[in-house]
Design a binder for these strands. Structure first.
Lengths: 127, 127
DNA sequence: TATGCATTTTACGTAAACGTCAATTAAATT
DNA sequence: AATTTAATTGACGTTTACGTAAAATGCATA
């Protein structure tokens, strides 16, 4: 017996903690492309992978439009030199953005640590 | 001559690439508290620092409500044991969130690197 | 067969985060 | 004094990302 081929809409909502509305919305936005069995949606492993990419992008603060661009990079067609070079440019931009976010995170974590220390000290003083 | 004490609204919009509307909106939301000289806003270094925190939070995908909570952690009043412990709990939550974002970023950077490599290889093959 | 349950489609609603006027007002320059 | 320039205060508009309610459909079970 081979791997499951399809996921139902409720399986995905349960696995990722999202609503059916969200899944249908992403489909309207052409981010997902579930097949149909009569009227029911059947999500493929590819849909599930894309969904993970979408949710990860959202966690990082990307809009759906940005998520779409990033996913399109993954799916890029072979293309000619000019296209490929443009693609590299866009990749570099996203990488720079992500590196900025890394810095932002490190700063924030550091500050939260400092707050935590001062709170801890206050707690120690309280007996 | 000591350090500048105030920033005008246009100085801040220029420095951070935002609009006056945004600054007034943050003020309505009680995130900033500029003084007034007649009707004109005079932003203090403290306002500027908070603005930086706001913009950094936004880059990380936090909503203004979340940014507000984070800033309030920085500004927390001394408080009693129960309060302090709750604060530590909230700090831990935010830290976990940020660590998840770090993982998400590393994964995304790795994937973008892979795409970049395959694009580069294609370019090399094109002569 | 009737009934319940999940799913679908349609469509209006909503919260967040500003954008974009329009109508003052004040300060600075001619 | 007249005029340009910068800032302010409403207030309605817009986009994004779904929420939510209603009505129809289809499968499963009592």
């Amino acid at each position: 017996m081979t791997k499951r081929r399809y996921y139902t809409i409720t399986e995905l909502t349960a696995e990722f903690g999202i609503t059916t509305r969200t899944l249908r919305f992403y489909e309207d936005e052409k981010l997902l492309n579930p097949e149909r069995q009569a009227r029911k949606r059947l999500y493929t492993p590819r849909d599930r992978t894309r969904l993970k990419l979408i949710l990860r992008g959202k966690r990082l603060g990307f809009s759906l439009a940005e998520v779409r661009e990033i996913i399109e990079m993954y799916d890029h067609a072979p293309g000619e030199r000019g296209q490929l070079e443009k693609l590299q440019g866009r990749i570099a931009e996203r990488q720079a953005e992500l590196e900025q976010k890394q810095k932002d995170i490190l700063e924030t974590l550091e500050e939260l640590n400092q707050v935590n220390s001062s709170v801890q000290q206050r707690l120690n003083e309280l007996k």
